[in-house]
C-alpha cells in the first residue's frame, strides 16, 4: 500500500497560516492504514492546529472531513461543497489524492499535510518499509520474489556489491542486504543458476525515463459508436 506520514506540525501550521478557513481532508484508504489520513488523524491534527492558535487571537477555522478515496472523483464528489467553500484544502491523502483534488478544483489551493513516503508495508505497528518502486517492468521472477530496485541502496541487478557484510547493507547495519536474502532464497528454491546470468542494461522507459507515465487498457475503455 501507499505509505505516508504527516509533515512536521510547524511546517503545516506555516503553510496554512495565510488561510482563514482550512478544510482538513482525510482519505480513508491507504493513508488511513498508514495512520496518517483517517478520521482519527484528521481529528487529532485539526485539534493540534487549533491548540497552536489558542490565545493568539487568530481567526482560523479548521473543518474536518474524510472521503473514502481522494484519488477517485466519485468519492471526492461527497466533499465538493466543502472544498468549494473553504479557503484551502489541507490534504491528508497521498500525493495521488492531493493531485486529484487540485486537478478537479481549480479555484481551491491544496496543501500537503502528508509526505508520501513509498509503496510498502508495516511489519510492526509504527514501522513502515518500502517494497516496490512501481518501476513499471517487474523483474522479481529473476530475484526470488524480492525486489532489488526497491530494496538495494544501489538498485543493483547483478548481485550484491562489495559492501554486503553479514547480511546487511553497507549503508547501515539496520538495513538488510536484499541481495544476500535473494541469494539465500534462490538457493533454498534450487534456482541459483538464475543468478549466474548477466542481467543486461535496463530500459528505464517504463520507469522515470519518459516523464509522467500512463497506460490504457483497451478492454476497459468505453468504445464510442459501437452497439449496446
Amino acid at each position: 500500500m501507499i505509505k505516508a506520514k504527516h509533515k512536521p506540525i510547524e511546517s503545516i501550521g506555516e503553510m496554512a497560516a495565510p488561510y482563514r478557513r482550512v478544510l482538513v481532508l482525510g482519505c480513508n484508504t491507504c493513508t488511513a492504514v498508514s495512520l496518517a489520513g483517517g478520521e482519527k488523524e484528521v481529528g487529532l491534527l485539526s485539534s493540534t492546529l487549533r491548540l497552536r492558535n489558542a490565545g493568539k487571537g487568530k481567526n482560523q477555522e479548521f473543518q474536518e472531513f474524510v472521503v473514502k478515496r481522494q484519488c477517485e472523483m466519485e468519492f471526492l464528489e461527497e466533499a465538493r461543497e466543502l472544498i468549494q467553500e473553504t479557503d484551502v484544502v489541507l490534504s491528508l491523502a497521498c500525493g495521488v489524492g492531493m493531485n486529484c483534488v487540485a486537478d478537479n478544483f481549480p479555484d481551491t489551493p491544496v496543501l500537503p499535510g502528508n509526505d508520501t513516503a513509498f509503496l510498502g508495508l508495516s511489519p510492526e505497528l509504527g514501522q513502515f518499509t518500502e517494497r516496490c518502486v512501481a518501476c513499471g517492468d517487474c523483474l522479481i521472477h529473476l530475484t526470488g520474489g524480492l525486489c532489488p530496485l526497491a530494496r538495494c541502496a544501489k538498485r543493483l541487478l547483478n548481485g550484491p556489491c562489495g559492501g554486503s557484510e553479514e547480511g546487511h547493507c553497507e549503508i547501515s547495519p539496520d538495513v538488510p542486504c536484499i541481495w544476500h536474502k535473494i541469494y539465500d532464497r534462490m538457493r533454498a528454491l534450487g534456482q541459483l543458476d538464475k543468478l549466474s546470468v548477466v542481467v543486461p542494461v535496463r530500459e528505464w522507459s517504463m520507469n522515470d525515463a519518459i516523464g509522467p507515465r500512463s497506460f490504457v487498457r483497451e478492454d476497459l475503455t468505453v468504445q464510442t459508436g459501437q452497439g449496446e
Partner: peptide
C-alpha cells in the same frame, strides 16, 4: 558500483545507478 553517496560529503545527492558495475563492463 561506487561507495554509496551516504558515506561522502554530499550524502543527500541522488545516486544514479542507471547501470550496475556488471552492466558497465558489458
Amino acid at each position: 558500483s561506487g561507495d554509496h553517496q551516504k558515506f561522502g560529503n554530499h550524502p543527500n545527492a541522488k545516486g544514479v545507478y542507471d547501470l550496475d558495475s556488471t552492466q558497465l563492463i558489458a
